[in-house]
Simulated scan of single mutants.
Amino acid sequence: MAASGWLRGPAIGQGSTATVYLATTTTSSSSAAGRTQQTFALKSTELSRSTSLQREHAMLSSLSNPHLVASLGATITSEPGGRIFFNLAMEYVPGGDLSEEIKRSGPLDEPAVRGYTRGILSGLAYLHSAGIAHCDVKGENILLLGSGGDATVKIADLGCARWVDGGDEAISGTPLYMPPEVARGEQQGAAADIWALGCTVVEMMTGKRAWPNVTDPVAAMHRIAFSGDVPEFPPNVSGEAVDFLGRCLRREPEERWSAEELLRHPFVNCEGQFAAGGSSGPETKASPRSALDWGFWVAEEEEPEVEEGLPANPHAEDFSSDSMAERLRRLTSCGVPLSPAPDFLPWEESSWMTVRSAVEVVVGAASSLLFRHR
């Protein structure tokens, strides 16, 4: 077996329990031509504090979806000073996260929001079909390969994730993205991810958090839990966007649409784009073939649904009375242009440091990594 090792470079992320580094692996042979390198993200924390990271590894190792950051293996290492670390190697996504994109660009245009939302939903539908709730959906945990389109979106950081049927676990996540039932400490499941997705869509459209005037986490949780409010809907957006947000931001969890149902909503469902990047979850009914197939969800004879407590929006009535020409215009304008991913982080060669060389690295047929500690 050829000698193996990996190098840890600069930190590219910091969470409450772990630090994420950019890393590379090298496998050398007798000739320079036999040497290969692979860049990956390395999430590390001390072994004594690694419970959530080990749970994340256990979940990711059983999952595979184009809209989910892949696990490449894990190892335990002994660092200088006798400190023992648990390290999780993950796919490296060079485009940064959605929150950074919003900070750079401000409010995103609606076609871009549709594309990003479609990709997030595809990943969530897959997770939920596997019995896992993410529990911390937000822009910082949505990584991008480029700009726009569901193929560019990857959900990251399952540190707060839980098995839906796993019994009682402590509530976790980010207060401003928690739904009422989580803020009250009652339950946390797949429906909580849908509320958080709605908050993230509001953030994409406005460039601000869903609760922009609330800065104190305790005050935020109290308002979310007991006030009866929902996040304010963005102005000047399409009726489809208003209706989509209304399906996500319902205070009662059982009234929120599932990720699979939302993937069939005309706000995100564009023929051709959705078909290429849909969820790998369980089979569902066929999606409508055009924006004219709104009857797929709401029968013609049904009255338009009115949600109590949802903010009024002048576009809401237009959604139920659009002309055929207008619906066709929306369908054909749903594409999202792609642009090259920006450089992520520049670094000098001298900033890299060798962390562990006595580690065996096996590169499989699918270019995945398996770390084995000697």
Rank of each mutant, 00 (worst) to 15 (best):
A3D: 13
W6N: 02
L7Y: 10
R8I: 11
G9L: 06
P10E: 04
T17F: 15
A18L: 05
T19E: 11
T19M: 12
T27A: 11
S29R: 15
S31W: 12
L42Y: 01
L42A: 03
L42F: 07
Q54N: 05
H57I: 07
L63E: 01
P66N: 06
L68W: 05
S71Y: 05
T75V: 15
E79W: 12
E79S: 13
P80R: 08
G82T: 15
R83P: 08
I84S: 06
F85W: 13
A89Q: 05
Y92A: 06
G95M: 02
G96N: 04
G96H: 04
P107C: 07
V113G: 02
Y116R: 03
R118Y: 07
G119K: 02
L121G: 03
G123F: 01
Y126V: 06
H128W: 07
H134F: 03
V137Y: 00
K138R: 11
G148P: 03
D157A: 07
G159H: 01
C160V: 09
V164I: 15
G167R: 10
G167H: 09
G173I: 05
G173D: 02
L176M: 11
M178L: 08
E181N: 06
E186N: 08
E186L: 15
Q188L: 09
G189C: 07
A191V: 06
A192Q: 01
I194W: 05
L197D: 02
T200A: 03
V201D: 00
E203A: 04
M205Y: 11
T206F: 02
N213T: 13
N213F: 14
H222A: 10
D229K: 07
V230G: 00
E232M: 10
S238C: 14
G239I: 05
V242S: 02
D243S: 12
F244S: 00
L245D: 03
R251A: 04
E255M: 15
A259K: 02
R264M: 13
P266G: 04
N269G: 07
A275V: 09
S279I: 05
A286L: 12
P288Y: 04
A291R: 11
A291L: 15
F296K: 11
A299I: 09
E303R: 10
V306H: 12
E308F: 07
A316V: 13
A316R: 14
A316G: 06
E317F: 10
S321M: 12
M324R: 14
M324C: 11
G335S: 14
S339N: 12
P342V: 09
L345Y: 14
P346N: 09
E348N: 14
M353C: 09
E360S: 14
G364E: 08
G364T: 09
A365R: 12
R374H: 14
R374V: 12
